[in-house]
């Protein structure tokens, strides 16, 4: 359904590309996780699917949704694409809703071109009911500031479903919520995916969450894909040192009792330029060759790919 092919995005004035040859595909009903630190290009990738690149950005490659390239769409086609094919769920539901308009307006606005006003309201009630909000008719008349973050995220999800999209982009959709709400929202997303056969792109910095939710996980660093594998495989045997570093960052409860182990250094900014592998300066396995080796994804024995010079060395 979604096929991103070698998407490279340059921003004038930046030393390195925002996205470096990113490829990604999602089939209907599939959940793909996009994992990485802030600034690794996860959100930019999702925004590219909506055709929302920063102004002045130059993009190469293709972003195909059911064969149509988002990057070359006319403004009218792009609006129709945003309207009907793809919906995005944002990190902060409080910022995603217009504070001076009612919850009902948010939903009805999305339903309007297809429905008349009366049936749009009825459909909005159904949608709120479907995402598990109590007393949906009353919610329509409330303002965003009268609802909690978890309730608002349900409203945002209801809004995303309003136009029956085929693909949902969840950009850190649960990061701003507390843990119990987080679990509820995730199970809601999973239920909706199975019910409607939606493709789901789950962007998160939480590798454990990605492993639990996703069919496949793609790990990004400095605008490029460093590794992608089946979720269970990635979690069991992470190939790229960055993926392992991310896994070591979270505290574990198993017998080893090792304290969380942060990756040294900072995620690179747009001003940093890399002659070789961008992760080399922070990599525990880096050798002198890494400084000049341009990462190329290599197939892994268990399926998937990883872009690391050290992998063949280790497996030999």
């Amino acid at each position: 359904m979604l096929d991103i092919e070698n998407l490279t995005v340059h921003l004038p004035g930046a030393a390195r590309p925002l996205l470096a040859s990113v490829s990604l595909s999602i089939r209907p009903g599939e959940v793909v996780g996009l994992v990485g630190e802030s600034g690794s290009g996860k959100s930019t990738t999702a925004k590219a699917v909506l055709g929302l690149l920063p102004s002045g950005a130059v993009a190469h490659g293709r972003v195909l949704l059911d064969g149509a390239d988002v990057l070359t769409m006319s403004p009218a086609d792009l609006r129709a694409h945003r309207r009907h094919s793809v919906a995005m769920i944002h990190q902060d539901p409080r910022a995603a809703l217009n504070p001076v308009r009612r919850v009902g307006d948010f939903l009805v606005e999305r339903l309007m071109p297809v429905h008349d006003k009366r049936s749009a309201r009825a459909r909005a009630v159904e949608l709120l009911d479907a995402v598990g909000l109590s007393d949906p008719a009353r919610r329509l008349r409330q303002y965003p500031h009268e609802l909690s973050g978890g309730m608002l995220q349900r409203v945002v999800i209801a809004g995303a479903l309003a136009t029956r999209p085929r693909l949902l982009l969840a950009d850190e959709a649960t990061s701003a919520l507390d843990v119990t709400t987080q679990a509820e929202i995730l199970s809601l997303l999973d239920r909706l995916r199975t019910e409607h056969g939606l493709g789901l792109l789950l962007i998160t910095h939480d590798l454990h969450l990605a492993a639990a939710m996703c069919d496949r996980v793609q790990v990004m660093y400095a605008g490029g894909t460093v590794e992608q594998q089946e979720a269970s495989e990635l979690f069991r045997s992470p190939a790229h040192p960055y993926t392992r570093g991310l896994l070591d960052c979270s505290p574990s409860l198993d017998a080893t009792g090792l304290p969380p182990h942060p990756i040294p250094g900072q995620p690179p900014s747009l001003a940093d330029e890399f002659p070789g592998c961008p992760f080399a300066p922070r990599c525990p396995l880096a050798s002198a060759d890494c400084e000049s080796w341009t990462p190329v994804p290599a197939a892994l024995p268990g399926g998937g790919t990883a872009a690391c010079l050290q992998i063949p060395v280790r497996s030999a």
């Binding site: 929302l52 792009l78 609006r79 945003r82 309207r83 995603a96 217009n98 606005e109 999305r110 136009t163």
Partner: peptide
């Protein structure tokens, strides 16, 4: 510049509607 304006734009509303209901209204 508010986030919800970007959200409205990402939802594919016509620009006139985005300006009227999400920018000027606010």
């Amino acid at each position: 510049g508010a986030d919800h304006v970007l959200v409205a734009r990402a939802s594919g509303f016509p620009e006139r509607q985005v300006v009227a209901r999400h920018v000027l209204r606010n």
